[in-house]
Design a protein around this nucleic acid. Structure first.
Lengths: 315, 315
DNA sequence: GCCCCGAAAGTTACCGGTAACGTGACCATC
DNA sequence: GATGGTCACGTTACCGGTAACTTTCGGGGC
């Protein structure tokens, strides 16, 4: 019991005892069993569940990396899942997670099944929804508005004089944050009295290929566009590759805008017009907010992470 | 007890009882507490620790995704860590993991501290070392030979008639698998009596920037190269961007080879010469091998995942 | 010297699933 | 009908850390 107190930094022991305990811990190589600790009294678990759409995206990877690192430093461990943009898979994951009695949950999605919401309430633990900002967070929300990102980019595109504008998206109806950017973009165009002249929303995962073929397909239907907004930078770069192949130059012949601020966007022959997302800051902020809540400190329910439109030179 | 037996699919209950149990489980929404299960008798944990160099790499992301998915389907949960190519961080992570008494461990690295090895032995659980093949696996090894990858690429480069060859690497001395490719590459060149004429090994994380500036630096010292082998595809693409900027064309003016088979490599104006890694297969195979071992089924200690040299057209 | 108080340290019970073992019912066999 | 065996199901103890409680000890005030 005294060992437990010393190692947890609780009170109720003398300095001399503390020394002795630490020495003995060192000598025997004693490792406390976190499983037993988490299993015991409620509120002693240091396990946090995190669910993201996919692990293969550098953007989410970077958020995860920051979350994981920050939580580890604060004494928490993460259990990770991916839902592939399917709310049902998120629920299945959450059900498994719930059986591990985590101290908190991080969800990188905006859309949840009713089952997910009920389960979260039953679990009665802090929940951080990251990435998208929701109007009504279940508990905490840390992110930014994809809608605003789209709208801002529309203003950038129209103020550059572009008028015949297309959109290339991905993930079909499963997409959520991408669709928000799309709607924001459309709304932004409407401010100048414009509408989208073409759109191509693929079922595929976003990626270079998808951008390449999406652009090809859209231009086959509608060849006179003077700008394209892409789901993300990877697709924009794929699109640029297709444009280069058919001899169109950005920005002279056609404008191109992406989203996400991936590193490659800045070493292209012409720096890509995009929106940069501070993923590391997002992950770190989310981790810190969650731990504050777990410790009972006051926390803002909604934390906005500022994104930045990178003008680049492809619009 | 009977409920436990039914839910675990153990024996010792009648069909009628099974039905009743399942009905009641459904009705009450009973969720077994995996924490308690894992905490109890040894060998009942379904927790598996996985440590990769970083979460931001699409290559590792893809391995993780496959691992995670396959393990989840087989009834296991993963606890993830990243060590940033530092064996000491791996040990720190493993120490934390050990306190969760996992059923098995997956390590995506070849180099371990003595502390790590001792800890793994003390934990006495199956260990899968993935990514690199080691000559003496601690337990299981699933991967491929980075050395062979490098050697094979050297043969490809020399057989294309290249003679003045440079190398651009990353991660400085922390690199392990990259260095193996480097050594294999040098050995491959030696077969034709060649040596590397220049090399530039950055301290940075591999990435587009690093490839861009690494190429710039190396060419400033040695401008007459006719081919460059890069740490990976991202760096190769960064290098290509720099070459394009100074007016050099691949493969006419200079040959370029990467590694990793990233998607973007295939939509470049000229398909990048690279080595494709079946990351999903690697992750899935590792997960299955580990679970076989956990179940006591016979498993190959070493599983080789076949990589594929993609000739492309930049050499 | 006595009492009281607070700090330090010890004791007990609990979390929930499962291995090991115990019990009872039923059936076949001699 | 006594015996032995098997199957279904119940009972007990245990894993290890911690909350809550009890005990012990030392010191200060009267």
């Amino acid at each position: 019991m005294t060992v437990s107190r010393v190692l947890r930094g609780a009170s109720g022991f003398s300095e001399a005892t503390r020394e002795k305990v630490l020495q003995e811990v060192e000598r025997t190589g004693y490792l406390p069993n976190r499983l037993a600790a988490a299993f015991g009294p409620a509120g002693t678990s240091t396990l946090i569940g995190v669910c993201v759409p996919r692990l293969t995206s550098p953007l989410f990877g970077s958020v995860l990396e920051a979350l994981n690192l920050t939580l580890a430093r604060l004494g928490y461990q993460t259990m990770i899942g991916s839902h592939n943009q399917l709310p049902e898979e998120e629920e299945i994951w959450l059900r498994t997670l719930a059986s591990w009695k985590p101290a908190a949950v991080v969800l990188a999605s905006r859309v949840h099944t009713p089952g997910t919401v009920k389960l979260l309430r039953d679990m009665a633990v802090p929940v951080a929804e990251i990435w998208d900002l929701t109007t009504k967070p279940i508990d905490l929300a840390i992110g930014f508005s994809h809608y605003d990102n789209g709208q801002e980019m529309a203003r950038c595109v129209t103020s550059a004089g572009r008028r015949k504008i297309g959109y290339v998206g991905a993930l079909g109806s499963r997409n959520t944050s991408g669709r928000l950017r799309y709607h924001g973009f459309v709304a932004g165009l409407a401010e100048t009295g414009l509408t989208l002249m073409a759109e191509e929303i693929l079922q595929d995962q976003p990626g270079f290929y998808a951008g390449y073929y999406g652009t090809e397909t859209m231009l086959a239907r509608r060849g006179d566009l003077d700008a394209i907004y892409f789901h993300d930078d990877e697709m924009a770069i794929g699109g640029l590759a297709y444009l280069a192949r058919i001899g169109l130059k950005a920005p002279q012949d056609i404008g191109v805008a992406g989203w996400g601020g991936m590193e490659a966007a800045s070493i292209l022959p012409r720096r890509l017009t995009t929106t940069a997302i501070p993923t590391t800051r997002l992950g770190k902020t989310a981790a810190e907010a969650l731990v504050s809540r777990l410790r009972g400190d006051p926390v803002d329910e909604v934390t906005i992470i500022q994104t930045r439109l990178v003008p680049g030179s492809t619009i």
